[in-house]
Nucleic acid binder design. Structure first.
Length: 1097
RNA sequence: GGGCGGAUAGCUCAGGGGUAGAGCGUCGCCCUUACAAGGCGAGGGUCACAGGUUCGAAGCCUGUUCCGCCCA
């Protein structure tokens, strides 16, 4: 098939991403090119195979299936791109009961006939028609989801080949003595009219029923310890079963009934005599009257009692839930009507001994929710223990591992006390049991229809009418679908499968049984890894079910939001250990992500004119810091994504790419790149374009397993745009990005640039300065950086980016510890830099003071915590040296930061102390308009931050400030003119801030906190609590004192009186923080998101 | 009755000994020519409770309370 984009000359992307149009195009493209086909002859590439858990053929996929499809497709596409020979094998399950019920119901509705009216053959013909008609919907749904399934290998459990496998397995197990037929009590569904296995019973934990007591009259009165006994009272939750009672049991040690054992009671309705037996297992003498009625044919416990005491088995309920002839006068009644009738009859006879509410467990049919009936019947069983043992060992030996690991226990527990598996079902739709009976009752089990009885040779044979449990055939799925019992190349190449990915709800039904069958018939586990995904629930956390009406068709979602958005959502929510609550809101968010990616690409295309992909090594081209930085972040993202995929942490993988694309590539790099893209420096422009292309195409490849459609689309568009002939003609044929070393130096050295921008943006945001009001117009923005490298880097070009991104016009960079003080400014401080934004005339001292106080409080809190740690000798001695060193560096950084903020704060309060000065400023028009301090003019460090004592006398800082204030008066005046438009809002804000000082809010909050709790906390961790409380008050100075006062000696010491710290900071101000970045991404598990968000690197 | 899981920001949830995070929602500013499905900034946490281990606990251990699920 032709590349759908090949004809397009100059791709021009639509303004927004239109998933409908794009998603319709690519599935046929992939399929027709054979990308989905697993090659059984290819032995050069390592194989990677998954068999799709077969959905019910007549059903339609719900979101649980969508999750299955998504996760498996993520794995398969990822592995394919990583060089594996992948096979993902699709198929459907005939789903015996479910399908038969649907078709029966439909026949009843449309033709008013039952399956019995039609006869077996005709009925089955109808089911096949039904299957053909509705089976295709599942395929369509998988197409819409983008599932890269190998449709050439699609299978159906009732296919000829799979049916052959089923017969083969049945016969072999029978021959090995592992399949047998026996009359036992089974769970019977009167509605489905079939036997069920234990697993198909849903236990209703606490059904509110009632316990009804009645008296059995003794045939002959007896003497008890308390006098003559004429009756024995028993209680039951199921009165109708008394018609099948064949004993009354008491405990052998029970004094009350000792003389009664061996005697008889008379059945009040049927008249027969019933023995009284002693049974220590069944009877709890403390419960009720201590006497129990026994119905061996209708109760599992009673059945055992019957075996122990050789009791008669009387079946009174028929397959349809009605009373049979053994029920005497009640024959023909429905079991629940019979219940009422029994009570009525016994009340008439004066034997009713009352009713009381009772909570009991109740078994219901998984399929129809009907209350199940224990029923005595002939059924086929698999003797399971010999099969379970190897399946246990395989897991113990690590041949198959479960993810999440905790499922191992669940699997083991079930396997270790597993019961024989009832595999026969009284249905027509399914694999008919390959057993034939002759008139003499001999059984012949054979692969093909036998002509004569294997035992007596009689030719009149009748095949067993029952079919096999659907799970019997699906247990063979991993090898029956690959051609077994033939030894095919497909089996040789792709068995065992690599991963079994399915919901944890079918770990017993399916996973465990596949393990047993795989090991038994293939001699090898069916899969190396079992990944069990969580359940998808609605946004209220409810299980999706038809009866609740909250089932969502994936097609509806893909139509509305796009398959990519749905897939990404599901992957991003698939964390181990918790169910998924899916909401539209969430999907909308990821649709926005698709749009974001689209628009980032759109931007690139608009700025790639003339750029061609020449296969250059981008890392050598990209000498400039921003380029090196984004490439380092990209590599880190690749590493994180691949590591997460390898560990089946789908959410981590999805989030890593998401965070990179949105918060680093789009929020940061694209903005930073504009300077070069719009600029005149061709070499820089070229390098930037190359890096942009690299980032985008790598992101596409990273994302492709999650969002196949949009990435394929963009891949082609970009490929065409940059004439990248070397790129494969489908992203699915491209290589998945490879892990590699991260350029940490690039990440570190770029930190100050991001920090400076952040600082300026913060000032803007907090002071409410709109972006269109440029900063540094009258008086320049001052940036002081502490180390030469950063200084050089800024002047070499990064400064221009900062200006563009932060909206700065005039700027001045100095190599210094701090910027010159200026009271009409806001200051931002980070590791290794200080930024001063002049806001002459605009600045609101209260607002800036509040902002700085907030910042100081934060620093105080962090610093107090760290210093407390560092002052603890055992921490320094016992903690790993790296940790201690890290904390020391961090403390140093914080002290420096606080020193700078303190200095700024001190100056602000100096200005505040003389508000009149501000008014006078506006009248001093004669002054020189500039406060410019050229870089060269300030080589020496600025005056040391003011120690606290100097507040009392005019400090050097304040003196300097005063000078500058005087000098800057005119600047202030003109700045007012300049920013007039933007100011009004600021003034408003300033006023409100002035009215309600920042201190008020936290203080109120602190007051609202419950005092006892705070005190309690303080008692436990004095220093921490005190500091915390102090910070909440948002008056750092006072708070520090309060903390010192409140805390016991130890705490006070740890609270590190501000004065001392300020001095210490002043003593060594010029530490080079660039060496110790605030955040060292490598050291953190998931640094990207946080770091990106805060922009602190 | 046994087992497993969960309790972290208003909501939905990540994180699993070393500076408490995301998405959505909230608040403020902005249509800054990729994107208003957007940008910038901000606020928001006794990590259920009580003990213990540790230099250090949201995480590990013990117990308690609630909420799920599985098995009998």
């Amino acid at each position: 098939m032709q590349n759908p984009n090949e004809n397009e000359k100059a791709p021009e992307l639509a303004k927004g991403y239109e998933h409908r149009e794009v998603e319709a195009r690519w599935y046929p493209f992939w399929q027709e090119r054979g990308y989905f086909h697993g090659d059984e002859h290819d032995r050069t590439r390592p194989p990677f195979s998954i068999v799709l858990p077969p959905p019910n053929v007549t059903g339609s996929l719900h979101l649980g299936h969508a999750l299955t499809a998504t996760l498996q497709d993520v794995l398969v596409r990822w592995k394919k791109m990583s060089g594996f020979n992948t096979l993902w094998l699709p198929g459907t399950d005939h789903a015996g009961i479910a399908t038969q019920m649907i078709v029966e119901r439909e026949l009843k509705k449309t033709e008013k006939v039952s399956r019995h009216d039609l006869g077996r053959e005709e009925f089955l013909r109808r089911v096949w028609i039904w299957k053909e008609r509705f089976g295709s919907r599942i395929g369509q749904q998988h197409h819409a989801l983008g599932a890269s399934l190998d449709w050439q290998r699609e299978r159906f459990t009732m296919d000829e080949g799979l049916s052959r496998a089923v017969r083969e397995v049945f016969v072999r197990l029978y021959e090995e003595g592992l399949i047998y037929r026996e009359k036992k009590l089974i769970n019977w569904c009167p509605d489905c009219r079939t036997a069920l296995s234990d697993l198909e019973v849903e236990h209703e934990e606490a059904h509110r029923g009632e316990l009804w007591s009645f008296a059995y009259p003794l045939v002959e009165p007896a003497q008890g310890p308390a006098g003559t006994i004429t009756e024995i009272v028993v209680a039951t939750t199921r009165p109708e079963t008394m018609l099948g009672d064949t004993a009354v049991a008491v405990h052998p040690d029970d004094e009350r009934y000792r003389d009664l054992v061996g005697r008889k009671v008379r059945h009040p309705i049927l008249g027969r005599e019933i023995p009284i037996v002693a049974d220590a297992i069944l009877v709890d003498p403390k419960f009720g009257t201590g006497a129990v009625k026994v119905t061996p044919a209708h109760d599992f416990n009673d059945f055992e009692v019957g075996k122990r005491h050789g009791l008669e088995l009387v079946t009174v309920i028929d397959v349809d839930g009605r009373m049979n002839a053994n029920a005497g006068p009640l024959a023909g009644l429905d079991r629940f009507e019979a219940r009422k009738e029994v009570k009525r009859l016994l009340a008439e006879k004066g034997l009713d001994r009352g009713t009381q509410p009772h909570v009991l467990p109740l078994g219901r049919c998984q399929r129809s929710q009907t209350v199940l009936e224990p029923m005595l019947s002939d059924q086929w069983y698999v003797k399971i223990e010999p099969l379970a043992r190897p399946a246990i060992e395989a897991v113990e030996q690590g041949k198959t591992r479960f993810i999440p690991e905790q499922w191992t226990n669940t699997y083991m527990a079930w396997m270790r006390n597993i019961h024989d598996w009832c595999i026969s079902r009284q249905l027509w739709w399914g694999h008919q049991i390959p057993a034939w009976y002759c008139p003499d009752g001999h059984v012949t089990v054979a692969r093909t229809t036998p002509s004569a009885c294997a035992t007596c040779g009689k030719p009149e044979l009748r095949q067993d009418e029952d079919v096999l449990d659907t799970w019997f055939s699906s247990a063979l799925w991993p090898f029956s679908t690959m051609g077994w019992p033939d030894q095919t190349d497909t089996l040789r190449t792709f068995y065992p499968t690599s991963v079994m990915e399915t919901g944890h709800d079918i770990i017993f039904f399916w996973v465990a049984r596949m393990m047993m069958m795989g090991l038994h018939f293939m001699g090898e586990v069916p899969f190396r890894t079992v990944y069990l995904h969580p359940m998808v629930r609605d946004e209220k956390g409810q299980k999706m079910s038809k009866t609740k009406g909250n089932v969502i068709d994936p097609l509806v979602v893909t139509e509305k939001y796009g398959a990519d958005a749905l897939r990404f959502t599901l992957a991003a929510l698939t964390a181990q250990g918790r169910d998924i609550k899916l909401s539209d809101q969430r999907i909308e968010g990821y649709r926005a992500f698709a749009n974001k990616l689209w628009n980032a690409s759109r931007f690139a295309l608009m700025n790639l004119a003339g750029h061609e992909e020449r296969g250059e090594d981008v890392s050598t081209l990209a000498a400039s810091p921003a380029e090196r930085w984004i490439l380092a972040r990209l590599q880190r993202t690749v590493n994180e994504t691949v590591a997460a995929l390898e560990a089946f942490r789908f959410n981590d993988a999805a989030n890593a790419v998401y965070a990179f694309v949105w918060h680093e590539l789009c929020d940061w790099y694209i903005e930073l790149a504009k300077e070069a893209l719009y600029g005149e420096d061709l070499a820089l422009k070229h390098a930037t374009q190359a890096v942009l292309v690299r980032c985008l195409e790598t992101s596409y490849r990273l994302l492709h397993p999650f969002m196949p459609f949009i990435t394929e689309e963009l891949w082609h568009v970009l490929r065409t745009q940059v004439k990248a002939q070397a790129w494969p003609d489908s992203i699915l044929a491209a290589a998945y990005p490879q892990t590699g070393p991260v350029d940490e130096a690039a990440e570190r050295s770029f930190g100050p640039v991001l920090g400076i921008i952040d600082a300026i943006r913060n000032i803007r945001g907090e002071m409410g300065i709109p972006f269109k009001v440029k900063l540094g117009v009258q008086a320049k923005v001052e940036i002081a950086v502490a180390d030469q490298a950063t200084h050089d880097l800024l002047l070499a070009g990064e400064l221009a980016r900062i200006q563009r991104v932060a909206g700065v016009e005039g700027v001045n960079v100095t190599l210094a510890a701090a910027t010159p003080p200026a009271p009409q400014s806001a200051v931002g401080v980070g590791p290794g830099f200080e930024v001063r934004v002049p806001l002459a005339g605009v600045i609101d001292l209260a607002a800036e003071t509040a902002r700085v106080d907030k910042e100081i409080a934060k620093v105080e809190q962090d610093l107090a915590g760290i210093e407390r740690k560092l002052q603890n000798p055992s921490f320094v001695q016992k903690a790993p040296p790296e940790v201690v060193e890290k904390d020391r560096a961090r403390a140093e950084e914080l002290r420096e930061k606080r020193g700078k903020l303190d200095a700024h704060r001190a100056m602000l309060s100096g200005s505040e102390a003389n508000p009149a000065r501000r008014d006078s400023m506006e009248n001093q028009n004669e002054q020189k308009p500039s406060v410019e301090v050229p870089a060269e003019a300030a080589p020496a460090p600025a005056p040391a931050p003011a120690p606290v004592e100097q507040q009392e006398a005019p400090s050097p800082v304040v003196q300097t400030a005063e000078k500058i204030v005087a000098a800057g008066a005119e600047a202030a005046q003109s700045a007012i003119e300049a920013v007039k438009s933007g100011v009004e809002a600021m003034v408003e804000k300033a006023k409100s801030v002035a009215r309600a000082p920042a201190a008020a809010k936290p203080a109120r909050k602190a007051a609202a906190k419950k005092k006892p709790a705070a005190r309690k906390a303080a008692a436990r961790k004095p220093a921490k609590a005190a500091v915390k409380a102090a910070v909440k008050k948002a008056a750092p100075r006072k708070a520090a004192k309060a903390a010192a006062k409140a805390a016991p000696k130890k705490g006070a010491k740890k609270a590190a009186p501000k004065r001392v710290v300020a001095k210490r900071a002043a003593r060594k101000p010029a530490r080079k923080p660039a060496r110790k970045p605030a955040r060292k991404p490598a050291a953190r598990k998931a640094p990207a998101r946080r770091a990106a968000r805060k922009g602190k690197r």
